[in-house]
Protein backbone atom coordinates (compact mmCIF):
# COMPACT_ATOMS: atom_id res chain seq x y z
CA UNK A 1 0.00 0.00 0.00
CA UNK A 2 1.74 3.16 -1.16
CA UNK A 3 1.09 6.65 0.05
CA UNK A 4 -1.53 8.08 0.37
CA UNK A 5 -3.11 4.61 0.44
CA UNK A 6 -6.74 4.75 1.43
CA UNK A 7 -6.87 8.52 1.31
CA UNK A 8 -10.52 8.60 2.34
CA UNK A 9 -9.46 7.74 5.84
CA UNK A 10 -7.01 10.62 5.88
CA UNK A 11 -9.86 12.91 4.91
CA UNK A 12 -12.04 11.48 7.65
CA UNK A 13 -9.31 12.03 10.22
CA UNK A 14 -8.68 15.56 8.97
CA UNK A 15 -12.36 16.43 9.18
CA UNK A 16 -12.65 14.85 12.59
CA UNK A 17 -9.82 16.88 14.07
CA UNK A 18 -10.96 20.06 12.33
CA UNK A 19 -14.45 19.54 13.69
CA UNK A 20 -13.26 18.97 17.23
CA UNK A 21 -11.05 22.05 17.01
CA UNK A 22 -14.00 24.11 15.80
CA UNK A 23 -16.10 22.90 18.69
CA UNK A 24 -13.54 23.97 21.23
CA UNK A 25 -11.78 27.03 19.90
CA UNK A 26 -14.39 29.66 18.93
CA UNK A 27 -16.38 31.62 21.46
CA UNK A 28 -19.32 31.92 19.11
CA UNK A 29 -21.99 29.35 19.88
CA UNK A 30 -23.11 29.02 16.25
CA UNK A 31 -19.57 28.31 15.12
CA UNK A 32 -19.39 25.55 17.68
CA UNK A 33 -22.46 23.96 16.12
CA UNK A 34 -20.78 24.21 12.73
CA UNK A 35 -17.79 22.43 14.23
CA UNK A 36 -20.05 19.74 15.59
CA UNK A 37 -21.47 19.24 12.12
CA UNK A 38 -18.04 18.93 10.54
CA UNK A 39 -17.11 16.42 13.21
CA UNK A 40 -20.20 14.34 12.52
CA UNK A 41 -19.62 14.57 8.76
CA UNK A 42 -16.23 12.97 9.27
CA UNK A 43 -17.93 9.96 10.77
CA UNK A 44 -20.31 9.78 7.82
CA UNK A 45 -17.33 9.71 5.47
CA UNK A 46 -15.73 7.00 7.54
CA UNK A 47 -18.82 4.81 7.36
CA UNK A 48 -19.37 5.31 3.63
CA UNK A 49 -15.73 4.55 2.99
CA UNK A 50 -15.86 1.25 4.74
CA UNK A 51 -18.91 0.25 2.72
CA UNK A 52 -17.05 0.67 -0.54
CA UNK A 53 -16.08 -2.55 -2.26
CA UNK A 54 -13.33 -2.15 -4.82
CA UNK A 55 -14.84 -2.28 -8.27
CA UNK A 56 -18.32 -2.43 -6.85
CA UNK A 57 -21.15 -0.23 -7.97
CA UNK A 58 -24.06 1.36 -6.20
CA UNK A 59 -26.13 -1.28 -4.46
CA UNK A 60 -29.07 -1.25 -6.87
CA UNK A 61 -29.93 -4.56 -8.42
CA UNK A 62 -29.31 -4.38 -12.15
CA UNK A 63 -28.56 -6.97 -14.75
CA UNK A 64 -25.02 -7.81 -15.52
CA UNK A 65 -23.56 -6.45 -12.35
CA UNK A 66 -21.96 -8.81 -9.89
CA UNK A 67 -20.15 -6.61 -7.38
CA UNK A 68 -22.00 -4.15 -5.22
CA UNK A 69 -20.87 -1.87 -2.48
CA UNK A 70 -22.13 -2.81 0.97
CA UNK A 71 -25.50 -1.06 1.36
CA UNK A 72 -25.73 -1.36 5.15
CA UNK A 73 -23.39 1.54 6.03
CA UNK A 74 -25.38 3.75 3.69
CA UNK A 75 -28.54 2.91 5.57
CA UNK A 76 -26.87 3.49 8.88
CA UNK A 77 -25.54 6.83 7.79
CA UNK A 78 -28.94 7.92 6.55
CA UNK A 79 -30.11 7.40 10.10
CA UNK A 80 -27.07 9.15 11.51
CA UNK A 81 -27.61 12.12 9.23
CA UNK A 82 -31.15 12.42 10.49
CA UNK A 83 -29.87 12.32 14.05
CA UNK A 84 -27.27 14.93 13.13
CA UNK A 85 -29.86 17.23 11.62
CA UNK A 86 -32.02 16.88 14.69
CA UNK A 87 -29.07 17.69 16.94
CA UNK A 88 -28.24 20.74 14.87
CA UNK A 89 -31.85 21.88 15.01
CA UNK A 90 -32.01 21.55 18.78
CA UNK A 91 -28.64 23.22 19.13
CA UNK A 92 -29.58 26.17 16.97
CA UNK A 93 -32.91 26.51 18.73
CA UNK A 94 -31.02 26.72 21.99
CA UNK A 95 -28.72 29.36 20.57
CA UNK A 96 -31.73 31.42 19.55
CA UNK A 97 -33.14 31.16 23.05
CA UNK A 98 -29.77 32.00 24.55
CA UNK A 99 -29.55 35.05 22.35
CA UNK A 100 -33.04 36.10 23.47
CA UNK A 101 -32.30 35.83 27.16
CA UNK A 102 -28.61 36.79 27.34
CA UNK A 103 -28.49 39.15 24.39
CA UNK A 104 -25.31 37.57 23.06
CA UNK A 105 -24.01 34.32 21.65
CA UNK A 106 -20.38 34.84 22.59
CA UNK A 107 -19.43 32.35 25.25
CA UNK A 108 -17.06 34.57 27.20
CA UNK A 109 -19.71 37.27 27.51
CA UNK A 110 -22.28 34.72 28.58
CA UNK A 111 -19.92 33.40 31.19
CA UNK A 112 -19.54 36.88 32.63
CA UNK A 113 -23.30 37.30 32.78
CA UNK A 114 -23.61 33.92 34.43
CA UNK A 115 -21.08 34.80 37.07
CA UNK A 116 -22.77 38.10 37.71
CA UNK A 117 -26.04 36.25 38.24
CA UNK A 118 -24.37 33.79 40.54
CA UNK A 119 -22.95 36.55 42.69
CA UNK A 120 -26.29 38.29 42.80
CA UNK A 121 -28.24 35.27 43.95
Amino acid sequence: MEWPGLYNYWIAIFLMVTGLYLVMAPQNLVKKIVGLNVFQASVFVLYITMGKVTGGTAPIIAEGIEVYSNPLPHVLILTAIVVGVATTAVGLALVVRINESFGTIEEDEIRELEEAQEDAS
Binding site: V23, L29, K32, L36, T87, V90, G91, L94, V95, R97, I98, S101, F102, I110, E114
Partner: peptide, 9 residues
Protein backbone atom coordinates in the same frame (compact mmCIF):
# COMPACT_ATOMS: atom_id res chain seq x y z
CA UNK B 1 -30.27 27.21 28.35
CA UNK B 2 -26.52 27.47 28.43
CA UNK B 3 -26.28 24.32 30.57
CA UNK B 4 -28.38 22.50 28.03
CA UNK B 5 -26.24 23.80 25.17
CA UNK B 6 -23.06 22.59 26.84
CA UNK B 7 -24.63 19.23 27.49
CA UNK B 8 -25.62 19.08 23.82
CA UNK B 9 -22.05 19.68 22.67
Amino acid sequence: LIASYRYLV
